[in-house]
Simulated scan of single mutants.
Amino acid sequence: MSQAAYVFDAYGTLFDVHAAVRRHAERAGPDYQLFSEIWRAKQLEYSWVRSLMGAYADFWALTEQALDYSFARVKSVDPSLRGDLLDAYRTLDCYPEVPAVLKGLKARGARVAILSNGSPEMLSAAVANSALETVIDDIFSVDAVKIFKTAPAVYELVTTAYRLYPQAVSFQSSNRWDVAGATRFGFRTVWINRNNLPDEYGDYGPSLILPSLEAL
């Protein structure tokens, strides 16, 4: 099915959220994977809690707070790595298939965009680092509405800007909770299940499940 717009979540979908710690794995030590997982989990938890409280802080602030919590939890990782890890997070690696997939969609005449919890500055840095500027038409950040996914106002950023019905948008995310929110909003959703995780949110299932973006 051809869609008018292909909209992508950023972190975990286009960009590898664990690449920052992996770059410094040797210095971080044997617990680097646990450290990275806690960092990511807390980053998301803080976004949901703040949305429910109505106490918005941008995603970069939450990323810093989650990192500090991770240092407190995983004592084997030296806190002197803080600056290097934050620098690495600004320039996360994209997944290998991303450039070719986005170029292919653009060649088919589709609009290509990002819809992310990330702050505009974070997203611009990540896009530039992977040289994706020429294949991404628009970057939509929750900063415009001051609430995080899965609030309907976030997904509405796309339909308002593009003057499209939700079903004309194909939304891709590796985060199953994000897919559930986008499905509830009315997008055609594709879950990029990179880690072969079990399904959840059965009442808001994706239109398609793929192991990577390659089959789009």
Score class of each variant (00 low, 15 high):
S2W: 07
A4M: 03
A5N: 05
A5F: 05
V7T: 02
D9M: 06
D16I: 06
A20E: 07
A20D: 06
V21N: 03
E26K: 11
Q33Y: 03
Q33V: 14
E45H: 08
Y46P: 00
L52W: 07
G54A: 07
Y56P: 00
W60H: 12
A66H: 05
Y69C: 01
Y69T: 06
A72W: 05
S76N: 10
S76M: 08
D78G: 06
S80P: 01
L81I: 10
G83S: 06
D84Q: 13
L85I: 15
T91P: 02
T91Y: 12
L92Y: 04
A100W: 07
V101K: 02
A107P: 12
A107M: 10
G109H: 03
R111M: 01
I114M: 02
N117M: 02
G118I: 00
L123R: 03
S124H: 12
S124V: 01
A131S: 14
L132T: 09
D137I: 02
I139C: 10
F140K: 08
S141Q: 08
S141W: 05
V145T: 10
K146E: 15
P152M: 14
A153P: 13
V154D: 03
V154I: 00
V154Y: 03
T160S: 15
A161I: 06
A168H: 08
F171I: 07
S173V: 09
N175P: 13
V179H: 00
F187H: 01
R188E: 14
V190S: 13
V190Y: 11
N193W: 11
N193Y: 11
E200D: 15
P206C: 13
S207H: 12
I209V: 12
I209M: 13
L213N: 14
L213E: 12
